[in-house]
């Protein structure tokens, strides 16, 4: 299944946001997930199944002025 992650089209296995985060080895506590322009809070990651063509933004806070 193809989805867009951070502006890049990628092949990912079917599953939930939580599974994707785990597969990518991302630290959940520092991660902000936007799914089709909607923020998905961490508590909901396991309930949201990815669909073909979904657009994901995986964000985090960094240093800035």
């Amino acid at each position: 299944m193809r989805v867009t992650i951070n502006g890049k089209s990628e092949q990912v296995p079917a599953g939930t946001i939580e599974q994707l985060v785990r597969q990518r080895g991302l630290k959940p506590e520092a991660l902000v997930v936007e799914h089709n322009q909607r923020i998905v809070r961490q508590a909901q990651w396991a309930q949201v199944r990815l669909q073909e063509g979904d657009i994901l933004e995986l964000l985090r806070f960094v240093g800035g002025g």
Partner: peptide, 18 residues
């Protein structure tokens, strides 16, 4: 204190500024 929001670098781990 200010912080910024950016895309995660999927190839690198990284420190949590918070």
């Amino acid at each position: 204190i200010t912080v910024a929001l950016r895309r995660v670098d999927l190839s690198a781990g990284g420190d949590n500024i918070l």
